[in-house]
């Protein structure tokens, strides 16, 4: 359970977050949605402790996150930003092994190898384990980074736009994997996502942000309706309910 209380972030005179209150239920998948510049990524990065808040507090199971040593925090919360570009020649397996750093500080044990194997199997990456990252497609790369995050064995996973630049097939694979992490392993997943239909199909909860504040929050049924989404994005939404779930159409105004 992560709770955020009255969180502020300002750069000089510019306010990015203005008093955000939110709570993220354990074992659930929560999507952060909203227009660009709403503060979604800022909120996520502060929960990840990659950015310091200007005011307010963030608690993990009731404890201020700033009081938890960074090494211990890495065993409880794992973060994946948009796959970084680096000039290393790494295999998938070597990348995933980095997920064990908080536990073994670079000297892998038998247990670590087992966890790495599990993470690779979970995402069906075994055939690619010896492939080099720079030889993979964007989708496979993102999968490999996700596997590293899974190997970190944390209760909570934070993902910043994990579907960015992916084709629809890989996007579905990633979202299914995240859903299974919640359902099968009881992990808490919080992600920033722009595709409203992915959020509607795969989330338990949705937190909608606009202008540095929470616009609305709740279950999918509560948030995904024409008036609320219309206000959030200033767009005309049509939401249809089909046999395979609700579908938001915002492509053409009515």
């Amino acid at each position: 359970m992560i709770t955020v209380h009255n969180l502020h972030k300002t750069y000089g005179t510019q306010t990015v977050l203005a008093g955000v209150n939110a709570s993220f239920a354990a074992g659930r998948l929560t999507s952060l949605i909203g227009p660009n510049g709403a503060g979604k990524t800022t909120l996520l990065m502060m929960i990840a402790r990659l950015m310091a808040p200007s005011g307010g507090d963030i608690r993990l199971d009731g404890r201020q996150v700033g009081d938890i040593p960074l090494r211990d925090y890495a065993k409880r919360v794992a973060t994946l930003r948009q796959a970084p570009d680096f000039n290393l020649r790494l295999t998938v397996e070597e990348l995933v092994a980095f997920g064990r750093f908080p536990y073994s500080r670079g000297a892998l044990t038998g247990e670590d190898h087992r966890v790495i194997d599990d993470a690779l199997s979970f995402l069906a990456l075994q055939p690619l384990r010896r492939a080099y990252l720079d030889e993979l497609s964007g989708g496979q790369r993102q999968m490999a980074f996700l596997a590293m995050t899974i190997a970190q064995q944390t209760d909570c996973l934070l993902l910043d736009e994990p579907l960015n630049n992916l084709d629809i097939k890989h996007a579905v694979h990633i979202m299914r994997a995240l859903r299974r992490l919640c359902d099968e392993q009881g992990r808490t997943v919080i992600l920033v996502v722009h595709d409203i239909n992915f959020a509607a199909h795969y989330s338990d909860h949705i937190l909608a942000m606009k202008g540095g504040a929470v616009h609305c929050a709740g279950s999918v049924a509560e948030v995904v309706n024409e008036t609320r989404l219309g206000e959030l994005y200033d767009l005309d939404f049509e939401i249809t309910h089909g046999a395979r779930g609700r579908l938001c159409n915002y492509f053409n105004p009515a």
Partner: peptide
């Protein structure tokens, strides 16, 4: 070598 953000989320100060 993974960069600041990834290193920090792996528990590196």
């Amino acid at each position: 070598a993974l960069g600041r953000d990834q290193a920090m989320s792996l528990g590196v100060d």
